[in-house]
Amino acid sequence: MSHLLKIENLHVQVNDKHILKGLSLEAKSGEIHAIMGPNGNGKSTLLQTIMGNPDYLVSEGSITFDGQDVLKMRVDERSRAGLFLAMQYPQEIPGVTNSDFLRAAINARNEKPISLFSFIKEIDTNIKALHMKEDLAHRFVNDGFSGGEKKRNEILQMLMLKPSICMLDEIDSGLDVDAIKLVSSAIEDYYAKNDCLMLVVSHYERFFTMIKPTHAHVIIDGKIVAEGDAKLVEKIDNDGYDWLYKELNIHPEVEVKPLVYSLGSCAHNKGLKK
């Protein structure tokens, strides 16, 4: 069954700041969409909004998945419907083992609970594929994990939960070169064997040479300003975003830093320096 994700005129606010300003996007099964753009322009906001993070307030627009109104669904319902977000900063859950967490998550989406034997077999296979430590299943979720281990654990969860929409938010950051190869190979393998679509946020063309996007989008100031395919990713890697600013006559917001006066090691009798 083919899946369709449709986002229309999406406006999103975070803490009263307008981040997404009328973003539209359509993606279907069998596609990998690279989401690029300078920092702070709305890439992660887009993924978090699709997943339903309560901190992100949708003021206008719609998101539908196979015709269902995603914005009316709770976060857990979105997940069970097939949405998955591999987070940039995965949460630690001390006291809850990966094994208990994943079994509960799998059972939440199936009428019949997964047998212990099938679960162990599957998690062991995936742990090996991702070259993770054998005791991972018995460790607490992300507790005491290195940055790289957390990112691999996100992919492990993806492989176990088998989503239809895989959203990967800078999954390559914090991974060394070998780990990036391993993770991208696991993602590619999952993509090849499953009827899914992927939305991938990354700053690095290198990552996109491994998972080969079919579509690319550049988000600047909360809107998609350029679209293309893998060639667009390559161009951005070579030339940055300046050519886009010029071509589209965009004036990026420059962060105004407050003027700092130093009082030196002792303010007494020194007054303010200019």
């Binding site: 997943m51 339903g52 993070n53 976060v75 857990d76 997940s79 949460q91 630690e92 859950i93």
Partner: peptide
């Protein structure tokens, strides 16, 4: 922790 709860919700747990 609400963020922890969001993370668990995002994996399908109500």
């Amino acid at each position: 922790d609400e963020e922890m709860l969001y993370y668990m919700n995002a994996r399908g747990l109500d």
